[in-house]
Design a protein around this nucleic acid. Structure first.
Lengths: 171, 171
DNA sequence: AAAAACTTTCAGAATATTTTGAAAATTCAA
DNA sequence: TTGAATTTTCAAAATATTCTGAAAGTTTTT
């Protein structure tokens, strides 16, 4: 890409972040607000975000709440200000961990639960039922494994250690 | 959940798989066809899938192709049959790896590329631009790390080794 | 207590995604 | 070849998701 001015690059960042997000099952506007706050050196209020991204108040409000649920932004009450201000977590490692954590909770958790339910509902008293349970059990095992792996990665704040482990594995 | 008959359990499995899939940004019908084939002891053709899930031919055709792109099902040409038959990969570890691989490719790849583009477009000749590049660089680092981690996990066919590593980490 | 400042809600509108099904294209047997 | 069987395409319809903006709710100031 050719040389860009800062404003242009920031817009591209916000736009790109929004587009990629839809590919990961995240709402585009939520991602754009997140990107905007990530790039903003100071906290912003709803009106500023509305003006910046040209979106409605309701939309901003809803997505700010979602972003807080995801643990990606914080509410900041400034002295002497009635309005609420929002600031993004700037430590990208924390951001990544937060996203991974949330996705683990939303994507793997329900899968494990659903498989447990199925296991409990079926008595393996025929060949067919055994076949079925075999698959359910396998999925159960794999999802518990994925869950554990995620948890481990998230717990390891010593990234260098993990990093080294990974490098060895790559050889 | 109370005791279920096999048919009921299979339907629940297919339904659940479809619902969960939408939460991970995957098309519901694609997931249902996948679930149906996972549970089917024999390969199925388009007409059978249409009848089973009550969906149109076009829909079945499109999603079968997507499932093949994901590497989750295979086309099977049976001798003496004009119709194409499809069979799912039954090894759940392979399925999980395939899904992880595909998501890595679709979700992390474009992110890395986008950040590289931004880095190239900006000259760090002002304080502001340096700030911006710092964030882009951080995201770049984190996504390359995530990419490597995924790759390592995928390469390790010796699951026991990884499993042990993970257990140690959990202590 | 009233009013002003601000946030939240939610029904309807706008947009995006998925699905249908008939027509076009392809494959294969005769 | 021809034509029957099968697969693929794609425009329009159905469905699902997201967004708007005005009204309702809340908090703070006077």
């Amino acid at each position: 890409m050719a040389l860009m001015e800062l404003k242009e690059a920031k817009d591209k960042f916000i736009h790109t972040w929004g587009t990629l997000a839809t590919q990961w099952g995240i709402n585009r506007t939520m991602a754009q607000i997140h990107a905007l706050l990530l790039l903003s050196p100071r906290s912003m209020n709803a009106d500023e975000i509305m003006a910046d991204l040209q979106i409605s108040r309701g939309n901003v409000n809803m997505n700010l709440r979602d972003l807080m649920d995801w643990g990606l932004i914080y509410k900041q009450l400034l002295p002497g200000e009635r309005k609420e201000f929002f600031i993004a977590e700037k430590d990208i490692w924390k951001v990544a961990k937060q996203i991974a954590k949330e996705r683990r909770r939303r994507e793997i958790g329900p899968l494990i639960e659903a498989m447990e339910d199925l296991k409990e509902g079926i008595q393996p008293d025929t060949e067919e039922k055994e076949e079925f349970l075999k698959i359910v059990n396998e999925i159960s095992k794999v999802s518990v494994f994925a869950d554990n792996t995620m948890t481990s990665l998230l717990k390891s704040d010593e990234n260098w250690l993990l990093n080294n482990f990974i490098k060895v594995f790559n050889k």
